[in-house]
């Protein structure tokens, strides 16, 4: 079955696949993860807030995002953002956003809803007595969160946060619908150009598998190292 395979196609495409494609995929993954965690933490704090306005807003946002297919959101933002930009800045024409920024904003906003739920359960996993102990020493709510609760929540949740990042890494391949040259997009372009669909898609699958599997392995090892001894 592999007799007709042309492995040379893959070798020749390697610089393009990795320097263009994978570089984009990793950049998007890392930036969207960081943005998603920052925004997700804010959303989690809002969801847990005493103020009904904040918690309802955050809950609605999270539920909305989690009820929509990612591809739909990617499309939506790509076509909508120029008009939102126009409205915000008051420009005469729709603001050109470009596929990179559009996809980065989309992934950040979308993943934030998932990170929010992870961080929220992380915060709730910290015993209530820790809040009392911090407050009893005169720490404010913000200090208690910043120095006592969130550090423990992140340690508890680190494996799940990283696992979500691995999912995000795979999901970034959906930017394909915006004709962006991410890793899968690059592989697809070479496949079409050279008529080597089987080789390229098989290779792409192997690379995604190898990276995700290795990353999962390290997450498990990390999990054992960062676990808090109680």
């Amino acid at each position: 079955m592999f007799a007709g395979f042309d492995f040379d196609v893959i070798v020749r495409a390697l610089p393009y696949l990795f320097l263009d494609g994978m570089a984009f995929t990793l950049t998007l993954t890392v930036l969207a993860t960081l943005g998603g965690i920052v925004l997700g933490t804010l959303l989690a704090l809002m969801r847990l807030s005493r103020f009904a306005v904040l918690s309802t807003f955050a809950a609605s946002y999270v539920n909305l995002m989690r009820s929509l297919p990612l591809v739909l959101v990617i499309f939506w933002f790509y076509f909508l953002m120029p008009y939102v930009g126009q409205w915000v800045t008051g420009a005469a024409n729709p603001v050109r956003v470009g596929p990179f920024w559009s996809s980065l904003v989309t992934f950040t906003l979308f993943e934030a809803s998932y990170f929010c739920e992870i961080i929220r359960s992380g915060i709730q996993s910290v015993p209530r007595g820790q809040v009392m102990a911090s407050q009893a020493m005169g720490m404010t709510t913000a200090q208690t969160m910043g120095y006592v609760i969130l550090p423990q929540a992140f340690r508890n949740m680190l494996p799940i946060l990283l696992t979500q990042t691995i999912v995000l890494f795979q999901d970034t391949s959906l930017v394909y619908v915006l004709s962006i040259t991410d890793f899968l997009g690059a592989a697809a372009k070479v496949a079409q150009r050279d008529g080597r669909l089987l080789e390229m898609y098989l290779f792409a699958a192997l690379v995604y598998f190898a990276i995700s599997f290795t990353a999962s392995f390290f997450v498990r090892r990390l999990q054992r190292r960062v676990a808090i001894v109680r």
Binding site: P127, G129, A133, G138, M139, V148
Partner: peptide, 18 residues
């Protein structure tokens, strides 16, 4: 917070920061 900083408290379950 200011008042609590002058009142020490010890809990049943210690509540050290792990």
């Amino acid at each position: 917070p200011q008042l609590r900083s002058r009142v020490g408290m010890v809990f049943q379950h210690f509540e050290l920061f792990p």
